[in-house]
Amino acid sequence: MSDSNRPVRLLFLMNEALFFTTHRISAALAAQAAGYEVHVAAPFEADPVSVIQGCGFHYHDLPLKRGGRSLFGEARLLARCARLIRQIKPDLVHHVAMKPVIFGGLVSRLLGVGAVVHAITGMGFLFIRDDWQARLLRALIRPLYRYALGHPNGRVIFQNPDDLQMFLEQDLVRRDITVTIKGCGVDMTTFAPVEPPAEPLVVMFPARILGDKGVHEFIHAARTLKAAGAGARFVLVGRRDPANPTDVAEPVIRAWEAEGLVEWWGFRADMPAVLPQAHIICMPSYREGLPRGLIEAAACGLPIVTTNVPGCREVVHDGQTGFLVPVRDGPATAEAIGKLLDDAELRRSMGRAARLLALDEFTVEAFVADTLATYDAALSKKGAG
């Protein structure tokens, strides 16, 4: 598909336009600066699409519903992916998250796209739940993953070693085409420590309002600590996600507010200004790829309470930068938060260690360099073939 008289065409296939602007735009801008012609295909959202087009990228609508399972909807998505690839003629397609990897990967391989990069950003609720429906869907998608990830000129990016090991054990990917890039990087000048705000102390949950993100354990902790006399404010900063089966309905959230347990600040695009209003970050998630929200918190020098699960334990070193608690354990979450509420020096020391860890492992510069190197590896393999 390449043409020596034009720039290398890079197509991002995304499950959300917003996710592109928050997690991948730095790599896309670097690719553009390196001479790539950048295209982005994602479901339409007015504000993120305005950002995408404002960067000089080519935007394409994609009829993808993350929670959708209708045969018609999935067939429509496949057909749209095929039309886009025939129209754009990309030299390299970067598929991000489960549906783009599977559906875009199938089409890219069938249509002979020269090179592909797949980003496994987490296992999603299908790999967290263990009911019969989840087991059936996992059995159905495994062969699709295996085919999509078998492109002869491909690279597969994992964010944590547990996800990589799972794919290897289930024979979904060859080890020699895998790359580990820890998260999506954070600008350490944009996210930086400031003096802690005045009391009352603020405990912040910076994530979508989902059961799988641990919001119920966070609420349990808030209720427990407030009943014990804690004067802290507990704040939810994130949007609902009705496409996810563990989404929390708005009336439930409003009831938590009415009970005096939490404040719901909703989705905020200005997280560099929001995070410094917190003293403690808590996200007791059930499983992650590598959560950007926790990386941003660490960069801001905040102590973190999270779970000892894949993705989260890559960001928090237990007892040093925060606390790791057992998954689905509200009492343990409350106990860890309580320790930090009671000890200002512990908050300061863990926050300093978190900032150093972020500087060492999670800079945006490292993420961009590793991503562009992965593109080069996939394209050079295409050239060698």
Rank of each mutant, 00 (worst) to 15 (best):
S2K: 11
D3H: 12
R6W: 10
N15C: 13
L18G: 14
F19C: 10
S26K: 13
A27C: 02
A30V: 03
A31W: 06
E37I: 00
E37G: 02
F44K: 02
P48W: 04
V49C: 08
H58F: 15
D61Y: 10
L62V: 07
L62Y: 09
K65L: 13
R66G: 08
L77P: 05
L78I: 09
A79P: 01
A79R: 06
C81H: 12
A82S: 11
R86G: 05
V96S: 05
I102F: 10
L106I: 14
V107M: 08
G114E: 15
A115N: 12
A119Q: 12
L126W: 13
D130P: 02
A139D: 08
R142E: 09
P143V: 04
R146S: 03
L149D: 02
F167I: 09
R174H: 03
D176A: 04
G185C: 01
A192P: 05
A198P: 12
V202S: 15
M204E: 11
M204N: 08
L210K: 00
G211R: 06
G211W: 03
V215F: 07
A222N: 10
G231D: 05
R233Y: 08
L236P: 12
N244L: 06
D247N: 08
V252D: 14
W256H: 06
E263M: 09
E263Y: 02
G266Y: 08
F267I: 10
H279N: 12
C282I: 08
P284K: 12
R292N: 09
I295T: 00
A299W: 00
I304E: 01
T306G: 03
P310K: 03
H317Y: 15
R328S: 14
I337R: 13
K339M: 15
L340W: 11
D342N: 15
A344K: 11
S349V: 06
A353P: 00
L356P: 01
L356G: 04
E361V: 05
V364M: 03
A366P: 02
V368S: 05
T371M: 10
L372N: 11
D376H: 15
L379A: 14
G385D: 14
G385F: 11
